[in-house]
């Protein structure tokens, strides 16, 4: 790094540069040591938030002593003075505006969780009734199917919807008789719609009420030529399962609130 030949203070001619008397250096040194002792001493006392101000004030006095006398800025021209102190101005801008972001991020109001928030919408369903198809249920199922299922399973349930091309494995062809993971009974299809099919692109639709899911199941079965029926044992098992509240499940809005709340807990001084 080239350091020699920097004619900062005396242009191209050798004008006599101010020679600081040596006792000035000595006195500055003495002051610096005193100030150091003072600043260390005050750090052992507790003045609360004043501590930092005192420490910074002392540090700045020491800094000015070094800059003005040891570095000789007191005797330098305006150019060097302006140059050097300018850098602190820009540093202040950097600190200030960055702080305006980092220290003023808003924290949302913490929300107390409510036990009832954690359950699904709606009371436990009457399985005995819903397991039997009715025209209303099938019509409702058709509407829900068109809204949620046609993209993958196709308008005729053949597993040939527009999105099916990109999926692996391919969506279930409801007219087929083989390959059903959970069976073609009402309870089987209900389970598939509720839990999805792990390892495949079929997602869970637990957000739909139990009645809605039964409706969809009934509609799906209309694509089949000879649909199998549930046994009594199947229905009993399903009643037990659906009758009890499902595993806790959060809505997306509530999940976002909880994330914000947890963040706030970890960042208490975020205001």
């Amino acid at each position: 790094m080239e350091k020699s030949g920097k004619p900062e203070s005396h242009g191209s001619h050798d004008s006599p540069h101010h020679i600081t008397p040596l006792n000035v250096y000595g006195r500055v040194f003495g002051s610096l040591i005193c100030l150091t002792i003072i600043t260390v001493a005050t750090s052992y006392c507790d003045f609360g938030s004043l501590n930092i101000l005192i420490a910074m004030a002392i540090a700045t006095i020491k800094a000015l002593l070094v800059i003005l006398f040891f570095m000789g800025l007191k005797y330098e021209g305006q150019e060097n003075n302006v140059t050097f102190f300018c850098s602190f101005v820009f540093l202040a801008i950097f600190v200030g505006l960055t702080s305006s972001d980092l220290l003023y991020r808003s924290t949302p109001e913490p929300v107390k969780p409510d036990a009832s928030e954690l359950t699904m919408s709606g009371p436990p369903a009457d399985v005995q009734k819903l397991v039997k198809p009715t025209p209303e249920l099938v019509a409702k199922g058709k509407a829900l199917f068109t809204q949620n299922c046609v993209t993958c399973h196709g308008g005729e349930g053949k597993g040939d919807g527009p999105a099916a091309a990109a999926l692996t494995p391919k969506p279930r062809n409801f007219t087929a008789t083989e390959g059903w993971k959970f069976g073609r009974t009402v309870s089987g299809i209900f389970k598939t719609v509720t839990n999805g099919s792990p390892g495949t692109p079929m997602p869970p639709f637990a957000g739909l009420s139990a009645e809605d899911r039964f409706a969809v199941a009934h509609y799906v079965r209309t694509f089949m030529s000879s649909a199998p029926e549930d046994t009594g044992a199947d229905v009993a098992a399903l009643t037990k399962e659906v009758g009890t509240p499902p595993k806790p499940h959060l809505s997306v809005e509530r999940a976002m609130e909880k994330v914000a709340e947890e963040w706030a807990a970890g960042h208490p001084a975020g205001k």
């Binding site: 505006l97 305006s100 972001d101 980092l102 220290l103 003023y104 991020r105 808003s106």
Partner: peptide, 8 residues
Amino acid sequence: QSDLSNFI
């Protein structure tokens, strides 16, 4: 970043 920053 904070809304304050955005505004400034």
